[in-house]
Design a protein around this nucleic acid. Structure first.
Lengths: 377, 377
DNA sequence: TTTGTAATTGAATCTCATC
DNA sequence: AGATGAGATTCAATTACAA
């Protein structure tokens, strides 16, 4: 009988249940991220945020016009022999992340043009479903000193669900509120991590690619709920953990480098408590309890036989039936269905289309009555 | 002796020299783009611009809030059985483009998150060297009607050289001049192709995905020299040809659809030699930095749960929520809306009304923080 | 003729609970 | 699992048309 391959279906390393840990909330797992993730139970985290090595393939030193040397990323962890090696590395961590994600969980990856296409292709090949690609536009990018290309002024983030059928969290109303009541777009203008925010060790930057907390703030606020678990397989100095704690979420980090871990632990110990959960969510019509139209009749706000009006200058009229349907000529059905039919439209929101006459004879949308019921709950 | 495989090294179809044509300048080659490119001499064109099918995989109908239907892309040419089929298609046209390019020639591809990672990976695998990824930020994108994702407000372009050693053309000074004497960044803000520019046939759009000339203008201006030859394997209605002619370059287009070819020929016959100044769409830096209140929270300048004060002697107080709204009693909304409500006024400029407490306990208007963010941009 | 308002439209992977 | 039905949901720019 053949031995089982160490990588099972979906590239998942087989672990005995006894070796698995229960979810170690707000903890940094020391060591390789794949080993770390494989110790966690399957289907246990709500969000993965990954900032993997970019495989930058930098050549020699880059010298600024003023003869200073650019401090590029030349850490060992960013060296790969070739694209095949980088792809293999990517496939492994993506598979491990896939295993620990809940079915409706989501994954974010950040990268640059050097690596993001390898990552995006592998995500699609493993069944992830891309939801958006997000452009992080940097307010203060490094210029192109040689004048040979366009200023590389952005990085790319991919947001994807575990499958096309999954229903990942998206706090639409929160993002809209955050953007002055306009839909949040796929291009985000945010500054680099510099100044006070940038962690330093002996006067030098602790981590070469520390991300700004503002970026993680938006990601976690948009795509998780308070209390959710956010896993970062390339934890570094803990930006993901800091943003998660500040927003009332839990983090789990994987990191190999003891210096990064030390810096992250010190940083996370300083983070204060999260604000009142009510301040962390945005109320919206979608999140409010559902009120059937019939409840307005049961509450005595509307009466069977009463007339509703729709469209400009009472263009359409419908009679309310005792069962909460409305009738307009030979058409009978829900307020939405009849609203669509009389307008010959593909769809209609009956709550805003239909109006009732108040005591003064003024026309008011029936949605006012629904609001009144909701206020009483 | 075995017959030679029809696809030689690098996926190039073997043509007898007698079948090859000399370079057919300013011409549309009718038929499949791979056959068309294979009829051209190797190493003969300076630039390839490709706008291949995106493989959008759209589902059912999408209905707008105003109950009309979105006219999505459902053309046959955008249907692929799966990623493998799309990858094979991409490998073939990329290989054919690679053959016709001069050694120092360059290639541009435009795409969206649906396909761009497949294309980018294949370009790297075939030896192309990515120079920049460019983000086309749309001034007027289609919104996300259902409120399910971030507004998909951009497309991605990849600019690459034929090899890492190649020295492709980049008109650095021209780009800098075009951008108010600042280096041109990798994110370009340009409008969609709408209005007069959009080609119509019998009142309906001739091509579902016609690109704006301003985009091609910038690409050709930046990465070719006058007299250069620009090849577009997916010519469509000839935007690339029009921009090339206006800039004193030559075009060669490949196109299968007779209707598109007819429209392109009519369009190109109208093109005069002078460049259209309207194509120099320079972003106006004055109008750009709109700072939503939420940006102050994301920047860490204000924290969820913190109190803002308004009016004389802290007459009003409001708590900041994580989404950038503020709460005052049962009222929750933008700084402007809540400011107006607590004063029982019709309107209010929240930026000047609300104040925060600094480290010394002094009250400062929140507009100070906005000014600080603006100064950093 | 001018001005104000309504209608149209753009590469879109666009719901969710219940039966 | 698939069908059904309630009901939530849009920004910027241009064109058309009414006043």
């Amino acid at each position: 009988m053949p031995l089982p391959h160490p990588l099972g279906v979906d590239g998942i390393v087989a672990f005995a249940d006894s070796e698995r840990m229960s979810l170690p909330l707000d903890t940094i797992l020391e060591g390789d991220c794949i080993a770390g993730m494989n110790r966690l139970p399957a289907g246990s985290v709500d969000l993965v945020f990954a900032d993997p090595p970019y495989n930058l393939q930098l050549g020699g030193d880059l010298i600024r016009p003023n003869a200073t040397r650019v401090d590029g990323v030349d850490e060992d962890w960013d060296r790969f022999a070739n694209f095949a090696a980088y792809d293999a590395f990517t496939r492994d961590w993506v598979a491990a992340a896939r295993r620990v994600l809940k079915p409706d969980g989501a994954l974010w990856v950040i990268g640059s043009y050097h690596n993001i296409h390898r990552v995006g292709t592998i995500l699609q090949d493993q069944g992830f479903w891309l939801l958006n690609d997000i452009v992080w536009r940097k307010t203060n990018p490094m210029p192109n000193f040689m004048g040979t290309r366009f200023t590389n002024a952005h990085e790319t983030l991919l947001w994807c669900a575990r499958s096309a059928e999954a229903r990942p969290t998206f706090n639409y109303a929160t993002m809209k509120a955050l953007n002055d009541d306009l839909q949040m777009r796929s291009d985000w203008m945010l500054p680099l991590c510099v100044g006070q925010e940038r962690l330093k060790t002996d006067g030098r930057k602790t981590h070469p690619t520390q991300k700004p907390e503002s970026l993680l703030y938006r990601i976690i606020l948009a795509t998780t709920r308070p209390g959710d678990v956010v896993l970062d397989p390339f934890f570094g100095t803990g930006t993901t953990g800091a943003a998660a704690l500040k927003l009332g979420r839990h983090y789990i980090g994987c990191e190999r480098d003891p210096d990064y871990i030390k810096a992250a632990r010190a940083r996370l110990a300083e983070v204060g408590p999260a604000p009142d959960p009510a301040l962390l969510v945005t109320p919206s019509r979608r999140t409010e309890p559902r009120i059937p139209f019939g409840a307005l009749i049961e509450a005595g706000m509307l009466k069977p036989g009463q007339t509703l009006f729709g469209g400009a200058r009472r263009a359409h009229a419908a009679i309310i039936a005792a069962d909460g349907t409305v009738c307009c000529g030979s058409v009978r059905g829900s307020i939405h269905k009849v609203g669509a039919q009389v307008q010959e439209a593909l769809a209609c929101n009956g709550w805003t289309f239909w109006h009732y006459e108040d005591e003064t004879g003024a026309l008011l949308p029936i949605d006012r009555l629904r609001e009144r019921i909701r206020a009483e709950i």
